[in-house]
Simulated assay, not measured.
Amino acid sequence: MKIKSIKIQRFKRLEPFVTSEIDVEGYFSTPEYLRAILTGIDVDELFKDLLRGEENDLISAFVNGRIDFERKRGTIGNLNHGALSVQAKEAVDQNPLSIMKGKRRLAKLRRIVKEKHGVQLPIDSHPNKPSDANLEILAKKLFPKQATFSSPLTKKIKPKKLKK
């Protein structure tokens, strides 16, 4: 059924796309993107402020997400909750940003930038937009006659001239 559904989508020129971040807001709250749009603000210090006090919530989010996943798979009875807790702590220690949802991360970053630096985080009005290499490939495939987008975060692509 799943393969048939994908074939139907492709026949209708629909392509599945999954963001590389947890959600779309995650693109606007990566260290790379913030370095591209913020001047005079130490982004590393900004992320230290962002993660301060978040460890317990991130561990909880990891555990709850995994329990939900196993419940949906029907394998919740096989789950070792003690080992899961250890995995959650290790995951948060290794890469806490990969667990924090982009919506929450962006909201907290906006608050921190406003409180500490007195400015609004210019994500929606800044000319540098985040980019996803997979989405750019998909856009070029689906819209070959239209200009493609470039970003300081990916290789710049020259737009093709449109035929009249």
Rank of each mutant, 00 (worst) to 15 (best):
K103I: 06
K89M: 06
K89D: 12
D68C: 10
E55L: 05
L58H: 00
K116C: 10
L162W: 08
L142P: 00
G53K: 00
I157E: 09
K103M: 05
V113R: 03
K108S: 10
N95L: 09
Y33F: 11
S150F: 07
I3F: 13
K163C: 13
L14T: 07
F143D: 08
S125H: 12
A107W: 09
L142E: 08
I22E: 04
V86I: 14
K116E: 04
E15Q: 05
N95H: 08
L79A: 09
S85P: 00
V86G: 02
G74P: 02
D132I: 05
S29D: 08
G118K: 01
R13W: 06
K12F: 10
G53I: 03
I8Q: 10
P31Y: 03
K2G: 14
E21D: 13
K4D: 15
E45A: 11
S85E: 15
I137Y: 05
R35E: 12
K108Y: 07
E136H: 02
E54Y: 03
S29P: 04
I123V: 13
E136Y: 01
S150R: 09
K4M: 12
Q120W: 08
N78E: 10
K2T: 11
T39D: 15
R13S: 07
A147I: 11
G118T: 04
T30Y: 10
M100Y: 03
R104L: 14
I3W: 08
P152I: 10
R52I: 07
I8A: 13
L153F: 07
K116T: 04
L138A: 06
H126R: 01
I59V: 07
D124E: 14
K101D: 07
K4H: 15
K101L: 04
L46N: 01
S125C: 12
Y27S: 00
G53S: 06
L50I: 11
K12N: 13
P152G: 14
Q94S: 12
L38I: 05
L135D: 03
F28T: 00
K48Y: 04
K158Y: 12
S151R: 01
Q87S: 15
I37E: 03
T30P: 00
T148G: 01
M100S: 01
P159S: 02
Y27M: 03
G118L: 11
A36R: 00
A91Q: 10
L162A: 13
K101T: 09
K7Y: 12
K129P: 00
R66C: 10
R111Y: 13
H126L: 06
S151H: 02
D132P: 02
L142G: 02
V113M: 09
K7F: 12
S131D: 08
A139N: 03
K72R: 10
P130S: 09
I6Y: 12
R73Y: 04
A133C: 02
T154Q: 12
V92A: 10
T39R: 10
P130R: 06
S131R: 13
A147D: 09
S125T: 15
K161A: 14
I157H: 06
R105Y: 11
Y33K: 03
L153R: 00
E54H: 02
E15F: 09
P130N: 04
V113F: 06
D49L: 15
